[in-house]
Design a protein around this nucleic acid. Structure first.
Lengths: 229, 229
DNA sequence: CTCCTTCTGGACTGCTGAGTCTTATTAAGT
DNA sequence: ACTTAATAAGACTCAGCAGTCCAGAAGGAG
């Protein structure tokens, strides 16, 4: 039952949640961050109900009391983790607008869309991101507002950012059609199948191989068949 | 904690699981079916871990011992339910080929694809189907093979059936492109966004309103922009 | 050095859950 | 009427878990 050393992978997802911590800049915050880190990994692997506070304390090398000093209860810890981790998706969404900012001519459009599609694919198919999606989806009945908030801040934000991108491309006369529609079609042409598949499979990462590039290329071709100006 | 009377809705999903039951044609099978029906509703609403065998027995108006007479343990019951319920999706997949069988001329293609898209949307966005997806996705860590089998028999089967449909349409000179690619693009143009949204929201059913028709129509338009012969 | 806070380690409470067992009841088969 | 099997109802075991409590050990601030 030893937790494998994917701490690094978990770290990728973890944001500075300890920001709102009490006194000592590194005293309590260090413990708090350790708890968040450990709990994130456990929740992603075993789910909310499948993770005990004893496991969390042990994985964080901390006493159970310390866990309850930092977080009112298990649910509070869970919510804080989900909200915090969601920030990763928000950062990705914010990075989107500049992705196609330099595209001025029709010749530049297609390669840029392909590159973006590939980047999008590997971001969403990241095993940790998929695990987070599985976790939240599985708890949608128990935490409906949390699930809705995640959708708003992750997929929703990305779709809005994409719509913004296509809006600007339309201003430059490079694409046609409604920006929101374009964003939806682009997004799910790119990752619809891979995402659907990824939700039900733990290991498979078609993003690794050239499969991801093929998927991205075809998606852009189909997309431009309708939306190219 | 009374379970609302959505027994009818659950019934839609339930298939003759009791088929493999022991002796009496309606004695044991009746109990068995009642247990399956009750457990299905509870699992869909509260998840695997969130459902106790006591709740199942009570909801089925059956003693706990009877539950254990019919099913070795909770996990066996769960697996049997998931596999059984999956048959609904298989039936839908089997009904697909005949959907476009009568299409012979280019003029008939677009309306037929729109009708199919609409049917596809409402089938997948059915609240019970969404709940089943959430349930299985949430348990993918615990039951990886079960999740993979569900994917193979539900979304996988439907995609294969769609590919078959497009293959035949290509034989008739109505569409172009690889059938498998066409199936993927068609499927996720139609329900990508709605499905993604539906995984994180309990009530919203955009399938009810005219929204579903708008989604279906646009998906077909984009699809035909590339795949029309 | 001393005060004050935090941390540890572990015991402890109260509860819930999976699965077993017992006893008596029902119902069907012969 | 007699036998056999299944059932109901509920007690029971055993384990795990959320959350609390306590005694003692650090450890920094004055």
């Amino acid at each position: 039952m030893a937790e494998p050393a994917d701490t690094a992978a978990v770290d990728e997802l973890i944001v500075r949640i300890g920001a709102g911590a009490p006194a000592t800049p590194d005293g309590q915050t260090g413990k708090r961050a350790a708890i968040v880190r450990a709990a994130t990994g456990l929740f992603l692997r075993h789910g909310y109900q499948g993770t005990s506070t004893d496991q969390i304390a042990a994985a964080a090398s901390v006493s159970k009391q310390t866990v309850y000093n930092q977080f009112r209860d298990k649910e509070t810890l869970f919510r804080e983790i989900v909200v915090g981790v969601t920030a990763t998706a928000e950062r990705f969404a914010l990075s989107l607008p500049e992705a196609l900012a330099g595209v001025r001519t029709p010749e530049e459009l297609e390669p840029a869309l392909r590159a973006l599609a590939h980047q999008y694919l590997s971001a969403v198919l990241n095993p940790q991101v998929l695990a987070l999606r599985r976790l939240i989806i599985g708890e949608t009945n128990r935490f409906p507002e949390l699930a809705a908030e995640y959708y708003r801040r992750a997929p929703g934000r990305v779709l809005a950012a994409l719509a913004d991108v296509f809006d600007r491309l339309r201003d430059r006369g490079l694409v046609t059609g409604g920006p929101a529609d374009a964003a939806d079609d682009y997004a799910y042409l790119v990752l619809g199948r891979a995402l659907d598949h990824g939700m039900f499979h733990l290991d498979d990462t078609p993003a690794d191989t050239g499969a991801a590039r093929r998927i991205a290329d075809r998606a852009v071709t189909v997309f431009l068949g309708t939306y190219r100006a």
